[in-house]
Design a protein around this nucleic acid. Structure first.
Length: 297
DNA sequence: TGCTCAC
DNA sequence: GTGAGCATGGCTTCT
DNA sequence: AGAAGC
């Protein structure tokens, strides 16, 4: 057991040689070092959100569990926010991140709404998920269709890998639209894309009815639901990281596996945070004209 | 991982 | 003392 | 109502 001091807070590091990613032999100490370099990018997104972590205390191939509440054993300096009768850990400090990392927290999932704006998601999110056996180039193709269609409507969008199988497209909306309205807009886009590209895109909920098409999941924004944070590691064998990308990088070809704990520092040094606009209220897109159009129909 | 509880 | 159990969620859509 | 899906 080693004690480190970070940002003025003491953290006990236990089992630092325990292997969390067997494929690459990434130990807990390796992982904590990676978290330090990720923290500058991850923390601005986790700040001011309700956090759900997924913990793998014995590595990504072993048992896991979800955690929302601050455990009794947490250091007293870990901040929390009460929400839906729970004491959510507030991931607003690098020491909190490293404490969680030592606890085996691998994945960091966030509420769509900021703290204290309970009914207002800050972005629309489209989840593009390939069906079993689908080539990733088909995900890219659809992502670019979506981006260009939105551009044609004068709407800016952003993209990141989920770190698992697909891509996630974001449209920042500030606090303009409540969950019901945001879901209505998402449903409109889902139907629009599925109708316009019926042999590429499906919004079918049942897996066996998707016919190897790309699943455009527009149905995930609910109060209390979560999405993987930008720059969060994932509990995959390849140690992937949910990585924001520039659209030109998507055009040039990309794969979720290309972005992982082993190479993320390099990328961050070169590209910085390419999702900064999501943190900037002034980048909120105006979708009032979509709502008017939906209401007319 | 780290706690609590039953045995 | 050792070992088991625990640490989330709830809504939507389909059948 | 219950299961599937996320």
């Amino acid at each position: 057991m080693a004690k480190i001091n970070i940002g003025g807070y003491d953290i006990n590091i236990t089992n630092h040689n325990k292997i969390l990613w067997p494929k690459y032999g990434i130990t807990k100490l390796n992982y904590l070092e990676k978290l330090i370099s990720l923290s500058e990018y991850l923390l601005p997104f986790t700040n001011n959100r309700y956090l759900t972590t997924i913990r793998y205390p014995n590595g990504v191939n072993k048992d896991f569990f979800f955690q929302k509440n601050k455990p009794k054993s947490a250091p007293e300096w870990v901040d929390t926010n009460r929400y839906h009768d729970k004491e959510y850990i507030h991931l607003n400090h690098i020491a909190t991140l490293l404490w969680l990392g030592n606890q085996g927290a691998i994945e960091y999932h966030l509420s769509f709404n900021p703290i204290n704006k309970d009914n207002y998601p800050s972005s629309l999110v489209f989840d593009l998920d390939p069906s079993e056996g689908q080539d990733f180039n088909e995900v890219i193709e659809v992502a670019l269709i979506v981006k260009e269609t939105l551009e044609g409507m004068n709407i800016l969008s952003y993209i990141k890998t989920s770190g698992a199988t697909g891509l996630q497209i974001f449209i920042p909306i500030g606090s303009k639209y409540d969950y019901d309205t945001a879901r209505n807009i998402n449903a409109f886009f889902g139907q629009y894309f599925a109708e316009k590209y019926p042999n590429k895109i499906t919004i079918e909920r049942m897996v066996d009815k998707r016919n190897k098409k790309l699943y455009f999941d527009y149905l995930q924004m609910w109060e209390g639901k979560t999405i993987i944070a930008p720059y969060s590691p994932r509990a995959t064998e390849f140690a992937t990281v949910s990585t924001p990308l520039l659209w030109e990088e998507v055009e040039n070809g990309c794969h979720p596996r290309d972005y992982n704990l082993l190479n993320i520092e390099d990328r961050l040094k070169k590209k910085g945070n390419v999702l900064e606009d999501l943190l900037d209220e002034s980048k909120a897109q105006d979708l009032d004209f979509i709502i008017k159009y939906i209401n007319k129909k």
